[in-house]
Nucleic acid binder design. Structure first.
Lengths: 216, 216
DNA sequence: AACTGTGAAGGTTTTCACAGCG
DNA sequence: CGCTGTGAAAACCTTCACAGTT
């Protein structure tokens, strides 16, 4: 029994985790450009952040730099990938093979980063068997077996808003622990599941605030 | 001359602005469901937030509720739309008519929310004249005149990463003040311009942190 | 009785500033 | 000398708790 108020072990702030992929992205670019060393100041220039913030963020995970010199680009890049769990590939399944789902399947940005959509599902039985890119659309009733056979942990939701929460609940029931949701809703998920929403309309709606007199 | 350290007029925190569109979304749904009154507690349930946060957020802009009763759904909805500047439509232009650009043009979610893509551009002259949905692809050299004729303030960027910063600079030079960027880069813009990035890969990369042992 | 609006408290994140290392 | 890593300070954001209104 402690006299002081209970304070759980200081975790890494979520905002920090959200920034790590940005670091990965610029480091990847720097590596492609054959840069071998970079300082927190230079990283800050590229990302429009303060050098102190970058150093503090990295310090949550270890000591990756060299005083007087900076960070080794490739070393820091690989450390960050390991921390984020993207030093290996991830399989994902897609739910919803409409216009949006098709665009997601054809989006060339996922697989170079190690995210592979290995399977697609749609409630519409007419779409079953259709080939989109290299993926064949399957019936929703095959979802449990496919998820378990391929050990899929990520679900990408591209169904209409009205069905999205149901689909999300269904995915979670069958073992999905990460969801990338494209439906324009505010989904409710247990704390054991990580969800990210892709919602360009929300982005535009907060943008317009700053584009009106009111926002200045 | 004050003794106290200078503190600029307390602005509304950006996180608050980012949440307002969420309130708009659930209020819209509630209105469609013929709900007329809602409390901060109920809103909190729907959005997985504390009632105090919702009340505090709203208090930055005025007093919209009634004690003992809650908020009038339609009234609050319209106030929030006015605050965000979405009580009227916004015109946007799209740059990049490749696979991604085509998906954006065909995405049915923008126009019901008042965002209309009135024009599309591509550097590839072979695409000029092509019709995508109801929009005809134009040459980049027509961009300045079209932006000015239609008073377009929003640019949607769907070009390859290598060209994105150039395109963004170009848009800004010709009067665009809001940018929705789909290219996987960390763009640099002046403080007079508001930018939002749509980047599902970054979302996935922060998600996997929490899906690994490390993230628990 | 049921709720809002809000100062104040509490908690979190950013920035500062400098010791210490290469 | 130039830079990192990091306690401490400052700034920022969330939650509490309750006076006040309907």
């Amino acid at each position: 029994m402690s006299i002081e108020p209970f304070n759980k072990y200081t975790e890494v702030p979520e905002v920090v985790i959200l920034r790590l992929p940005l670091y990965v992205r610029v480091l990847t670019k720097l590596d492609e450009d054959r840069e071998t060393v970079i300082s927190s100041y230079q990283l800050g220039q590229l990302l429009q952040m303060t050098p102190a913030q970058i150093r503090k963020d990295l310090s949550y995970f270890g000591r990756f730099g060299k005083q007087g010199r900076g960070y080794n680009v490739l070393f820091l890049l690989e450390e960050l990938k390991r921390i984020l769990g993207i030093d290996h590939g991830w399989k994902a399944c897609l739910i919803g093979a409409g216009g949006l789902g098709r665009a997601i399947l054809n989006y060339p940005g996922f697989s170079p980063e190690g995210f592979e959509i290995v399977s697609a599902f749609d409630v519409d039985e007419y779409k079953n068997g259709m080939l989109i890119g290299s993926v064949r659309v399957q019936s929703m009733k095959d979802l449990p077996i496919i998820i378990s056979q391929h050990s899929i942990k990520i679900g990408i939701v591209a169904v209409p808003a009205s069905q999205a929460q149901n689909v999300i609940d269904h995915l979670i029931k069958h073992g999905i622990t990460g969801i990338l949701n494209y439906a324009p809703i505010a989904p409710i998920v247990p704390k054991t599941v990580t969800i990210r929403n892709v919602d360009p309309v929300l982005s535009l709606q907060s943008m317009t605030f700053y584009m009106t007199e009111r926002g200045k």
